[in-house]
């Protein structure tokens, strides 16, 4: 349990006045408040620290105790024992800003000096707060998000059943209301922010709702035309290859791409790029025939 210099946390001197403490706290609270810094863990930790510092230093009784035993808090055990027998000190100043923090809103150092957050009169005085929002990641394969399906997640020991909507994007975040931490003092529960991390282990590349695929054609099919069968997410598709198809030619298969998020009946397109493979290891006969073709072409 490390000693925490609350004066340093607030960036003030040891003889700062109450007004200076208040000003410093407000300035830092505006900088690190969770509402101003969504999904920022560092800001959340800083906010917790400045709240704790303010809670101690803005209360004259707490500040006196901190100033007396702060640096040598280990030697203040006897003082602590005596204090524990008495009623907890009244917390006159109710600096809230503890949205999202409950029992672990205080460092071990704070708990050792001033007792826990629960069971004190401060608990009764505190207004209702929304519970902490949770952030979680759900790792899925690209194929998994082609169709809507049910998933059961375990977040902080709680099982949550949710429907993963088809067409969800990699990196997309959805909010599940009320599935965060429990609210404090009867406040509403926090929300769960679920980020989808989609691993693409298919031969398709996805951009929005469109899928891209490269198909290799042999030289003869590209020159003479023919057929090719490809696999898509919803079955096989037969392609008609036009004669004299050039390398890197693109064809668009309308509606064969990815489903549109929250509009599953609509689909993006599948864009096929033909890559023409040159024949290798030619036999003498093939070389002779190519030479023949060359002669015809240069006539």
């Amino acid at each position: 349990m490390a000693f925490i210099d609350y004066y340093k946390t607030l960036g003030i001197s040891k003889n700062a006045t109450n007004k200076e403490i208040k000003t410093a706290y407000r300035k830092l609270a505006r900088k690190f408040h969770p509402d101003i810094n969504p999904d920022n863990k560092d800001a959340e930790l800083n906010f917790k620290n400045i709240n704790e510092a303010n809670q101690v230093l803005s209360d004259p009784e707490n500040r006196k105790k901190y100033d007396t035993y702060g640096k040598n808090w280990k030697h203040g055990a006897e003082y602590q024992q005596a204090q524990n027998q008495q009623q907890r000190q009244h917390q006159s100043q109710n600096q809230s800003g503890q949205q999202g923090f409950s029992e672990d809103a205080y460092s071990d150092f704070f708990e050792s000096m001033f007792g826990g957050a629960s069971g004190s009169s401060r608990q009764r005085q505190r207004p209702r707060f929304k519970g902490q929002d949770f952030n979680a990641e759900l790792h899925l394969k690209l194929k998994d998000v082609y169709t809507s399906h049910q998933q059961v997640l375990t977040v902080n020991g709680k099982k949550i059943r949710l429907t993963v909507p088809a067409g969800v994007e990699n990196g997309q975040v959805i909010k599940i209301k009320g599935k965060g931490d429990k609210g404090a003092n009867g406040g509403p529960n926090g929300d769960l922010y679920l980020k989808f991390v989609i691993d693409n282990d298919t031969e398709f590349k996805r951009v929005g709702n469109d899928l891209y695929q490269k198909i290799t054609l042999d030289l003869y099919t590209s020159i003479l035309g023919g057929e090719a069968t490809i696999d898509t997410f919803n079955g096989k598709v037969k392609l008609q290859i036009k004669p004299e198809t050039k390398n890197e030619t693109k064809v668009k298969l309308k509606g064969k791409g990815f489903p549109v998020y929250k509009n599953e009946e609509k689909f993006g397109d599948l864009i096929i790029t033909y890559h023409i493979a040159m024949p290798t290891d030619l036999s003498k006969e093939e070389i002779a025939l190519f030479k023949e073709l060359q002669k015809i072409k240069t006539k």
Binding site: A29, H33, I36, P38, Q99
Partner: peptide, 28 residues
Amino acid sequence: IGNLEKIIRLYNELHVNLEGIDVVLNLL
């Protein structure tokens, strides 16, 4: 409601006035 709660917190806890809250929400 979520937005309203955020506005109340910014107003009460950070003492940001309503014009400031408008700017903050737009920037967020």
